[in-house]
Design a protein around this nucleic acid. Structure first.
Length: 496
RNA sequence: GGGCCGCUAGCUCAACCAGGCAGAGCACUCGGCUCUUAACCGAGGUGUUGUGGGUUCGAUUCCCACGCGGCCCA
């Protein structure tokens, strides 16, 4: 065949036959550049829900979509047309279309994009249909659809060829649409509260604001190495310094780390900062936002996740991290517990501790190892040790702790928030402690951000801030247990 | 990074354990059928068995390496 189609697998007889039809169509006048549709499938189903079997409406409709299936009865055929809203049956009869028109319809292949016009009717069996009087082939599908019953199941193929997954697996379409609803609702929740949406840089000379390894790249014209952001935190707080008192960003974050059921190297985070608020205000805010998102996505704040009831109706449980650890180990612990005693307790419970860690880090690790997995109902885990919270403000009642919380649902973290550290002197000390950890070999410790310190020196008002993992939130409301199911094109090694 | 598992027709899967002509359903082609809903009935061809090597008279099957993916662990 010609070089023009060298990349298509014309050795495959299924494809070769379709290419022939494609060329015949091209020679017969080509394919349209646009098409006027009057109705979506779902709109017709809604409007004519009560049509009696055999009823004729006298109303003409023009629909368009992908032809998914044809059932040929001889002088009558039924087609299934799928558009973005759903499916509608095409009632195709030789009596209406004539011999040639009917033959042309049967000449179509499943997968083709078509437009069809005709009267809206209900068949004798009661199926709402368009009784087709004219058909237009809008675009030819050269490749066959997967099995009409089993669809495309292979996880790798579904991820790599999401377009095929979307056309044949209704679940995948539903997740994609729900994700859009979640993000839309998140945006609405924050906008309605007066938050201003901004965009901050992805390319940075130094990635800060979280404990993570960045991707690095190079800017040729400037001849400088750049990192991709691992958080938006410090830029958003600079904007609060600048006077944007309520600010948020929904943006892609990049972390150069492994891929597993809850981690993709690029993922979506929402961060928001509210001047004059503390972390208890942020808890109230998160409760309202999470329940609203659940309702927007599923119709109810009470969900089923992985077969188990999960109620996101406020208020959520609030529990101090230290109290949860004490409960788990069966004895009182606090920041005053001697470090040797904490280490002994940790190792007795199988929690590995590093000699360089202080009490705060040991308690934090014990929480992560012994407590977090077991928290099913939404829980604000509060008052994290200062040692593991370099950007959170010291707790007003205990200088060894911070006013920080994480929201844990079904054993995983969904949000991280604090009363923001706004004291430039304290912030510098925290950065220096991080720098020391970095020097000691912790390459995920935060670097010192001098410009951020300079911003704090102009004055950050008392501020509450939060970060929400959007992908995980979508997983929660769509009942998916793998992040790749909620990311349309998850990160994968190249094929071949 | 480690362990285990998978990769066979366009899709969903057999055959592999114990080596002997690579199969089924859907899709596709042809024929039949004016009310189907995964339509049905009859007939027909599906192929670099992920890639490369080894053992063997003979490899989808056994062995090795590699690639891609999955699950679990770190």
């Amino acid at each position: 065949m010609t070089d023009e189609h060298a990349e298509t697998p014309i050795d495959d007889p299924l494809v070769a036959a379709r290419i022939e039809k494609y060329r015949a169509g091209a020679e017969r006048g080509g394919y349209p550049y646009r098409f006027d549709r009057t109705d979506l499938a779902a709109e017709l189903h809604e409007r004519y829900a009560d049509l009696e079997p055999g009823a004729e409406t006298g109303v003409e409709a023009t629909v368009a979509g992908r032809l998914m299936n044809v059932r040929d009865m001889g002088r009558l055929a039924f087609g299934v047309l799928q558009d973005v809203s759903g499916r509608i049956q095409l009632f195709v009869s030789k009596a209406v279309l004539g011999d040639e028109g009917f033959a042309d319809f049967l000449h179509l292949d499943s997968g083709d994009w078509i437009g069809a016009t005709g009267e809206v009717i209900a068949t004798r069996k009661g199926e709402l249909s368009v009784r087709v009087s004219s058909v237009t082939l809008l675009a030819k599908a050269l490749r066959p659809l997967p099995d009409k019953w089993h669809g495309l199941k292979d996880v790798e193929a579904r991820s790599r060829r999401r377009y095929v997954d979307l056309m044949v697996n209704e679940d995948s379409r539903a997740v994609a649409l729900t994700r859009a609803r979640v993000i839309s609702e998140l945006r609405r929740q924050f906008e309605d509260r007066g938050f201003i949406e901004v965009e901050t840089p992805v390319l940075l000379s130094q990635a800060t604001g979280a404990t993570a390894r960045p991707f690095t790249t190079h800017h040729n014209a400037l001849d400088i190495d750049l990192s991709m952001r691992i958080a938006t935190e410090l830029f958003l707080k600079r904007l609060v310094v600048g006077g944007i008192e309520r600010v948020f960003e929904i943006g892609r974050i990049f972390r150069n780390e492994g891929v597993d059921s809850t981690h993709n190297p690029e993922f979506t985070m929402l961060e928001a900062y509210q001047a004059f608020a503390d972390y208890t205000d942020i808890m109230d805010l998160i409760e309202a936002v999470f329940s609203a998102v659940a309702v927007a996505a599923t119709g109810s704040a009470a969900l089923t996740y992985q077969g188990r009831l999960l109620d996101l109706t406020p208020p959520f449980r609030r529990a101090r991290l230290i109290d949860l650890v004490a409960e788990a180990v069966g004895e009182d612990v606090s920041m005053d517990t001697p470090i040797e005693q904490l280490r002994a307790l940790a190792s007795r419970r199988g929690v590995a501790v590093d000699a360089s860690w202080g009490s705060g880090r040991v308690l934090f690790e014990m929480y992560e190892e012994l407590v977090e997995d077991g928290l099913w109902d939404p829980t604000f885990v509060t008052d994290y040790p200062k040692e593991v919270s370099p950007l959170a403000r010291a707790h007003r009642d205990d200088p060894e702790l911070t006013e920080r919380f994480e929201l844990v649902i079904a054993g995983s973290e969904y949000a991280n928030a604090f009363s923001e550290l706004n004291d430039p002197f304290d912030q510098r000390k925290r950065f220096e402690a991080q720098a020391a950890a970095r020097a000691a070999g912790d390459d995920e410790a935060h670097p010192v951000d001098e410009d951020y310190l300079r911003a704090l020196e102009y004055g950050l008002p008392p501020t509450g801030g939060l970060g929400i993992g959007v992908d995980r939130l979508v997983m929660l409301v769509t009942d998916r247990k793998h992040i790749r199911e909620v990311i349309l094109f998850p990160t994968m090694r190249p094929e071949q």
